[in-house]
Design a protein around this nucleic acid. Structure first.
Lengths: 315, 315
DNA sequence: TTAAAAATATGTCATAGACAAAATGGTTGA
DNA sequence: TCAACCATTTTGTCTATGACATATTTTTAA
């Protein structure tokens, strides 16, 4: 009934796991795993079990573990390690399993509908915080366990984006303040986070421009000028190397006028001690709302003179 | 004003151009191009001009040219080659340049609006055929000339998807016939084509399920059964190796009940001589409409008994 | 404790050659 | 005239091994 999963070539494994060919070969030499079979031409072929383990290892490494600690471990140990990683117990198991089920049945329409109904029932704010957030985790873990294929994760992402963008379109108010630009840096492909933040901020009356993921810094600077942006929100997922976040933020800080605030959100920022000067961390969605409130009170008296401020800041 | 584009490392060039590190090194050895400089550690660094040329070369290769014919050529020659490739002169230059402009200004909202207004003015069918199709070309070429960054192309894709999905949602009719499943195979990442076809078919009253791109064959078979699908539409873009299309179609043909039709569309199918037995090629969008008409007349007398046919075909 | 320095771990890059897979071009047979 | 076949060439991917930059951890000094 399910996919029969034949053994994979090294490029296929690279595609499936995100581990480069070089890394796969080096691990084999250094840690003795993976240990692919060879085909008739002496080329590596990886049995599904090993691909499975590699997927798990990749997932654990994305949460900060080091290869030497985990590459040797067997699948069971890896799974238990993965289990100890997340503390928060999901409150609405039912929805999550239902969503994963719909994914597996390839019913994108049904998934969108389910999500949209949930949105109507809960309201946008609770929907984003209590439903989408845990769902993201559930889907991510299902994928790491090999229960979902890559394209099924795509399906999920598309459905969520669809629902959130719809909501955003309805909320869009060009007079809203602050004017917020949301995007990710070129090395960060995950764009769901910014949509979630955008939804929350737009609900509170901010004007949100979501650029989509992977915008070069120079282009962010252009967009900020062109659209008279007050706040830039960047999202860093768990896969973004934490060490690279501060320098990236500092570079952006230098390129933007000091009046433009820089907020950094996403799971990747949770591991940071403190924010670089002139930037702000938003490890959770609540922090985004708090930051918005503070921006508002800081600019409360100035809102009437905003137009002139923008005009000068565009030089 | 524009991006300053520093010299790039070999991985960066791989990311930018889609040419693997192995290929970049081999071309250097075989054809003498690219000829990257070396940094202080002896590692390759590619000046922007060479990256530019590589981008053009990749684009030309995607249209079927061979490396030996073009890797040596200079940028001007490559551009003229690219120019001779497309015959059809775009009729509404204005719109195309306007869209590219909006992209460059990072105004996704504005782009969506422009597209949506165009849709309302022209109607969905003309919008897809006369506007989106040439726009796709224009954007693709702008990208090959280096006028757009990767993420700007994403922006475009997202905007078009947004507009088309919106239209599709409004048209969706669960009673519609035939029931059409649209997707691409795992090696084909481009998903715009199926949305365009879906829009046209849905407009004519078909029920369309768009699975998103990169669905494994086994999963297509599952979905076909689960949703009582009459027709599977696959899209092959210009980058799909033409030689692999027939075997792929044949494999799918074997996995599906004979009553389920298989149509293959997209620019990749234009180069094929004839369709494998039991499948049908749709090199142009008009062909899709024609195929729909023929399906309808072939099943005209049976439409009343469709329900029972489905019930038995699901065994 | 904090900070700097040394040691270790890890990923990326380089070279060079083997060879499968794809494409081309010519030949044969319908 | 066209398609199918085979030989030849082209082209991309893979193997193997080692160097070394960069990231992380540990140790040492302040």
């Amino acid at each position: 009934m399910n996919t029969p999963t034949p053994p994979l070539s090294i490029s296929a494994v690279e595609r499936e796991t995100g581990l480069s060919k070089d890394v796969l070969r080096k691990w084999e030499a250094r840690y003795g795993f993976p240990q692919p079979l060879r085909d008739e031409f002496g080329e590596r072929i990886y049995p599904p079990e090993q691909v499975e383990r590699l997927r798990l290892i990749k997932r654990l490494m994305d949460t900060g573990m080091r290869p030497s600690k985990i590459v040797g471990k067997d699948a069971a140990t890896l799974l238990s390690l993965a289990a100890t990683r997340h503390v928060a117990a999901p409150q609405s198991e039912a929805l999550e399993t239902r969503a994963v089920e719909l994914l597996r049945q390839h019913d994108p329409e049904g998934l969108r509908q389910t999500l949209y109904r949930m949105l109507l029932r809960q309201g946008l704010a609770r929907f984003v915080q209590d439903t989408i957030s845990p769902l993201n985790h559930a889907v991510g873990e299902a994928w790491a366990r090999g229960e979902l294929e890559v394209y099924e994760e795509h399906l999920y992402t598309e459905a969520v984006q669809w629902v959130l963008r719809n909501a955003l379109a309805a909320l869009s108010d060009r007079q809203g303040r602050p004017r917020v630009l949301l995007t990710t840096l070129p090395e960060e492909p995950h764009g769901l986070g910014i949509l979630m933040v955008a939804a929350l901020l737009a609900l509170e009356g901010a004007y949100c421009v979501t650029l989509g993921p992977q915008t070069p810094v120079a282009e962010i600077a252009n967009a900020v000028k062109a659209q008279a942006i007050d706040v830039v929100v960047l999202s860093f997922s768990i896969i973004y190397p934490p060490r690279r976040i501060p320098p990236a933020l500092e570079e952006l800080r230098q390129r933007l006028a000091p009046a433009v605030e820089i907020w950094a959100g996403g799971a990747g920022t949770a591991r940071l001690h403190r924010a670089p000067a002139g930037t702000r961390l938003l490890p959770t969605l609540e922090d985004a709302l708090a930051a918005l409130g503070q921006w508002r009170s800081a600019h409360a008296g100035l809102l009437s003179s905003v137009v002139s401020v923008e005009a000068t800041s565009q030089t």
